[in-house]
Design a protein around this nucleic acid. Structure first.
Lengths: 341, 341
DNA sequence: ATATGAAATGCAAGCGCTTACATTTGGGGT
DNA sequence: ACCCCAAATGTAAGCGCTTGCATTTCATAT
């Protein structure tokens, strides 16, 4: 019989090594309390049988799974991909495994995924952004589940979070645009419903321009779903106005890339014909031509910091206060300066 | 007492509803065998207490976790992101949860992740490409673990796989390039060590050109790690030759995007000064200017098909045979035609 | 009313593991 | 040689859940 398709258990190893299951367990979990000769014998059998402890059983008694859950809107694009990768690397570094789901930006799906993560005994959970039903936070709190919000940071929100201030960052970019002389602003925002990051970014622009005294009608906001194509279409719509904007500010780089692409199609030169800005500074931002003026977000740093913060919360219960991460404006070719009136 | 931080168990629900744990369990798992009145009472308590079944306990007795593991080289870029997203969506559709790890293209890490997935009781595992140590396949086989290879398809390999023929696809692209009159070929390949997809793609080019009688010295291959920057640097190196190539064929779109970007920097026009081709047809391919001639890979379809195939393997043990997916050449502006000598 | 059997529910045995506690072992000290 | 105690190992009680089998319930037939 060349193969036995039965998965070996602790008991099998114990029998094979002629010891009790307790000893085998100890060899694996606290090797220093068992004498070398025994340990060697046991470990040899472990190797020979190809024994791997049963996760479920272990989780049940240890009441720990060393699993961290994360629910992200989508893994399909670079916005979360890089941060998520860093998050998982750091998790792995510290002995945890990542359980991911994507919600496709749909709250009901997010809630379902959340329950699934809880049921699976995730030791902690990473969520993107603040915006969700209070009942969800109640549920999490009632289960004593450590939760960390990432990709956003609001000083006055008590939830532990690792991220940056979307509103202030976008406001700063808005001011830069203003200083470049732009007075007719088009905005392509991601869907703000249920997405506080998108929401805050738009607010940041309002802050910037209205404080400067820009008439409201000079600020036109279009809201579209995430995507290159969507960005392009929104751009076309904005530019079709009687008095088109001199700058189109996009809620993220993907939308901006779509705008740039569409501009090329429409034979509108950037930045002479129109300026375009993005947000996030993903690779795309440097690939398009001209490169995007955008807000650089430290994705990898955010991912790593999130992992550490969450594990700390899980292991020692301490959660913050965390400082916001710094974002930074990257000025590149897609933003032009407007000479006098 | 506003909160009880104790997690309710089946037993708590049973007591609260005045029934046995068996009945509660049945309400949750086979609702039709319990009479409506009882069911209502039980479910009300379930809701009131916020009960969620303990995953570990359930997994232990059911010997199923409804979890599918996937190990991908990286989630950081679009190559796997889109397919992975589709994979997870389809998994979710069919009631499974995705457990992902990334190996960072490192075999030792992949092996470790693999064992972790097995230990966690994944019902099945998705792996990218064929190339890995035989001992790993033995281990998986000895545990009766359903495994599906994706992103690759080799007719003569008995492992169940969902993917396309990297070699044939690249060969076809090579022939197209030949037909466009190119006789000096530069190739930027991803690292082939331990990466059969990259390996096969290079082989495909060899097939195409050597069969046509191209002298070996006219085909220069550089191998670099994945990345925009790396692609750019390799491009610069290729173009620095005394007799530079007329076309630079890249192992994937990311490398190609780097090459395009670098060409712009070097003031080399595409395709007049040099042609560039990619592979994968991710969004990047249409964003760069000119857009990349590349091989379109049906990522979403592949992800969805992989999910279905793997679940079928898990649930009914049937695995294939699967047909290869079709890739398709996309001709865009980055490939130019050379007029006769 | 009573018998009857199908439907509904309860009982209790594990699933594989960890760990508190009990027991055995063995190496000094006298 | 004997006792003592620390070190090593074994024993067994669960962790929370599912499920085969036993028991109860109750609508229907008589």
């Amino acid at each position: 019989m060349p193969k036995k398709p039965t998965i070996p258990t602790l008991d099998d190893v114990a029998k094979a090594a002629g010891v009790s299951t307790a000893t085998v367990s100890r060899c694996l979990n606290s090797p220093d309390v068992v004498v070398k000769a025994t340990k060697d014998r046991v470990l040899k059998e472990v190797a020979r049988l190809g024994y791997t402890p049963n996760f479920g059983a272990r989780a049940m008694v240890a009441r720990r799974t060393f699993t961290i859950g994360a629910i992200i809107p989508t893994m399909e694009n670079a916005i979360f991909a890089r941060g998520l990768q860093a998050f998982q690397e750091q998790l792995h570094e510290r002995g945890y495994t990542l359980l991911v789901s994507s919600s496709s930006y749909r709250p009901e799906i997010e809630e379902e995924q959340l329950r699934s993560l809880v049921a699976r005994g995730a030791d902690g959970i990473l969520l993107i952004g603040y915006a969700r039903d209070a009942s969800i936070y109640d549920y999490l709190a009632s289960r004593n589940m450590p939760v960390l919000v990432a990709w956003a940071y609001e000083a006055d929100n008590p939830l532990p979070s690792i991220g940056f201030d979307n509103r202030a960052s976008m406001r700063a970019l808005g001011e830069l645009v203003w200083d470049h002389g732009h007075r007719r602003i088009g905005v392509i925002s991601g869907v703000t419903q249920g997405n506080d990051r998108a929401q805050r970014r738009v607010e940041g622009l309002m802050d910037a321009f209205l404080a400067k005294g820009l008439p409201a009608e000079n600020l036109k906001v279009i809201e579209v779903p995430y995507g290159i194509k969507e960005g392009g279409e929104a751009f076309a719509r904005l530019m079709a106005a009687d008095v088109p904007p001199t700058v189109v500010m996009c809620g993220n780089d993907v939308l901006a890339a779509g705008a740039v692409q569409r501009a090329r199609l429409m034979k509108i030169r950037i930045p002479e014909g129109v300026s375009i800005t993005g947000f996030d500074d993903i690779e795309l931002a440097r690939i398009v031509s001209p490169a995007l003026t955008t807000v650089h977000v430290p994705h990898r740093k955010m991912g790593r910091a999130s992992a550490n913060a969450l594990i700390d919360m899980v292991e020692s219960g301490i959660s913050g206060p965390f400082a916001p991460l710094e974002s930074k404006i990257k000025i590149r070719g897609s933003l032009g300066r407007l000479s006098g009136p």
